[in-house]
Amino acid sequence: MSSPTPSKLSAASSRETILARIREALRVPAPPPHVIDRTLVDVPHRSDPSTADPRSGFPALQVLPADAGRPWLPDGGDTPEERLAILTDNLEKLRAEVHRCRDVAHAAETIADLARAASWQRVAWHHDALVADVVRALSCETCQVDGPSGSDKELLESCQAGITSCELLVAQTGSILVDSRRSGGRGLSILPHVHLVVARVDQVVGTLGDALALTKQRHGGQLPSMLSFITGPSRTGDIERILVLGAHGPKELHVILVG
């Protein structure tokens, strides 16, 4: 960036000003919050024992460790069957459409039916083994966002539907995790009017905590630039608090579960 020296200087100084204000403010400790469950308090911190504020003199107050399961949040299920049942129930309540398919051929057929019924002219997709298999069965025009010609947002805007894979599905909240590296970038899952997600049933995890831990583990320090939890089709309640689907993102969300 070609900003002149004075603004760089002031940028450095405003960083120092703010941090100095914060350090000065934190010299007086704040009392710990009133909590009803002391067991939450007495657990040492999961990642770093030094995080108990040395300045405060208050006992280390930290959140439960991640692996404790958080038995007070909504249930995510203990077995794969339970998780799948909770996920399906949540997705239906969120007005997403769930299609259970025996195998990839069945999934391809299901998507081809949807395309015919809604007479889609152009469908966008991205490079992924599962997605490629189902796209082959489509008779309409298809465009690949991560092809050699790169992503074209004008072209993507003209697509009626986008087909993506996903990283995992969260039973607890009915969410689908897509990322910008392996689920077709940022635009594919949000710009077309219909979003189809092709996933295998073994991609279902229990809770949001599990999903975040698994994502970190999978990518290590190299997280993709975007991770998005999609929970149902786009919606708004801005007009008289009345629910309307399809505010800016997809009006329809189809989850095709294979296996």
Partner: peptide, 28 residues
């Protein structure tokens, strides 16, 4: 805030598009 299990989109952004990603901003 809204009486929902999760809002529709909860998205984490860490920087501009990376190599190997097909879209996204060049600067963040």
């Amino acid at each position: 805030g809204a009486g929902q299990p999760m809002t529709c989109y909860n998205t984490l952004y860490g920087g501009p598009r990376q190599e190997g990603e097909c879209d996204g901003p060049h600067e963040m």
